[in-house]
C-alpha cells in the first residue's frame, strides 16, 4: 500500500525546487534523532563487524576474544566457503533475471494496459506479501513436493524424469527466491514505466517503427532507472537470504547466509563476521560496477 502510494506520488511530481526549501538549523534538528539512530545502530555496527572479523578465532563468547588483527580469518572463510559464496551469487543472479522476465510484462501491463484496474492490480502485486515470508516459503514446500501437481504435470510432460523431483533441488531454491522478491522488481519498474509519456510510443509507431523497435528504442531505455533499481532491490536481499535455501533446498544448496548463521550459532564469531564483511564488500563492488555500466549513477 505504502509502496504503491509512494511510487504514485513520485511518478506524479518531481522533487521540491531548491528555492522552496527552508534554510537554517531546524533542518538539522529534525534530522538529528533519526540520523543518530542510523549512526549508532547502522554505521558503528559495521565497524564492530570489521573489528570482530579480526579477532583471534581461538577465543569464545564466554572467555572473550583477543583483538590480534587476525587477517587469516578472511583466508580461512574464503577457502572453506567459496563454494557457498559463489552459489549465492549465481542463485541470486538467476532469480533476478527470472524476476525481470516475469516482472517486466506485469509492470508494463499495469502501467499501460490496466486502465481503471491499475490501483487494484498494484494492490494485488503486494497483497501476497501480507502473509509472512516464512509461511509463503513453506507453501512452496507443499507446491513443489513429490506428490504435488507441479511435479506430476512435469513428469506427465516428460520434462522431469519418472524419479525426478523438485523439492530439495537448486530449482526449488531459485523458484522460492524468485517468488519472494518479485514485488521488489515489479514496483520500481512500474514507477519508471508510469512516467513515460505514451505519446512517445505513438510517435514511434507513426514513424513506422515496429512494436519491437519502439520497445527497444523508446520504452526500454526510458525504463532503465526502474530496471536498475529493481535489479538492486532484488539481487541484494536475495544474495543474503538463507530462508529459501534452508526450507526448499538440501545440504548441497546452502548459500552464504546459511553459513554465516551457522557460524554465529556455533559461536565462531570472528569467522562469521569475516564472511559477512566479505559479502558486504562484494555486493558494494558489484553494485558500483553495475550502476556505472548501466549509466544511472544519479540514482544513488
Amino acid at each position: 500500500m505504502s509502496q504503491v502510494e509512494a511510487i504514485k506520488a513520485e511518478a506524479e511530481t518531481g522533487p521540491t525546487p531548491e528555492a522552496e526549501r527552508k534554510r537554517g538549523w531546524v533542518g538539522y534538528l529534525l534530522l538529528l534523532p533519526g540520523a543518530l539512530w542510523l549512526a549508532v545502530f547502522f554505521v558503528v555496527p559495521l565497524f564492530s563487524l570489521v573489528s570482530t572479523s579480526l579477532y583471534d578465532p581461538a577465543g569464545s563468547l564466554e572467555t572473550g576474544y583477543q583483538m590480534t588483527g587476525y587477517v587469516a580469518n578472511y583466508t580461512t572463510v574464503l577457502e572453506d566457503y567459496s563454494e557457498q559464496f559463489i552459489r549465492s551469487m549465481v542463485y541470486a543472479g538467476l532469480a533476478t533475471l527470472i524476476c525481470i522476465v516475469l516482472g517486466y510484462p506485469l509492470a508494463y501491463a499495469i502501467a499501460f494496459k490496466a486502465g481503471r484496474w491499475k490501483n487494484l492490480m498494484l494492490v494485488a502485486v503486494i497483497a501476497p506479501f501480507f502473509t509472512s515470508f516464512l509461511i509463503r516459503t513453506i507453501s512452496w514446500q507443499l507446491l513443489l513436493a513429490d506428490q504435488g501437481w507441479i511435479v506430476e504435470t512435469l513428469k506427465f510432460l516428460h520434462i522431469l524424469g519418472p524419479d525426478g523431483h523438485l523439492l530439495a533441488t537448486p530449482v526449488a531454491v531459485v523458484t522460492g527466491i524468485t517468488y519472494n522478491f518479485l514485488p521488489f522488481m515489479v514496483l520500481p519498474l512500474y514507477a519508471s514505466l508510469e512516467k513515460i509519456d505514451p505519446r512517445l510510443m505513438e510517435a514511434g509507431a507513426d514513424l513506422y517503427a515496429s512494436p519491437f523497435t519502439t520497445f527497444r528504442k523508446i520504452t526500454l531505455p526510458l525504463s532503465m532507472p526502474g530496471l536498475v533499481g529493481g535489479t538492486l532491490l532484488t539481487f541484494i536481499p536475495a544474495a543474503g537470504d538463507y530462508i529459501n535455501a534452508q526450507l526448499l533446498g538440501n545440504t548441497q544448496t546452502q548459500m552464504v547466509g546459511n553459513v554465516i548463521q551457522k557460524l554465529f550459532d556455533g559461536g565462531s564469531y570472528p569467522e562469521a563476521a569475516a564472511l559477512s564483511v566479505t559479502l558486504m564488500v562484494v555486493i558494494v563492488v558489484m553494485v558500483l560496477l553495475y550502476v556505472r555500466r548501466a549509466g544511472t549513477e544519479d540514482l544513488l
Binding site: F41, F42, V44, P45, L46, S48, L49, S51, T52, I236, P237, A239, G240, D241, Y242, V256, G257, I260, Q261, F264, Y269, A272, A273, S276, L279, M280, I283
Partner: peptide
C-alpha cells in the same frame, strides 16, 4: 544492505 549483514553487525555491536 543484505539483512544478514545488518543482523550480524548489530550482533557484533
Amino acid at each position: 544492505s543484505p539483512e544478514i549483514v545488518m543482523g550480524s553487525s548489530l550482533l557484533a555491536l
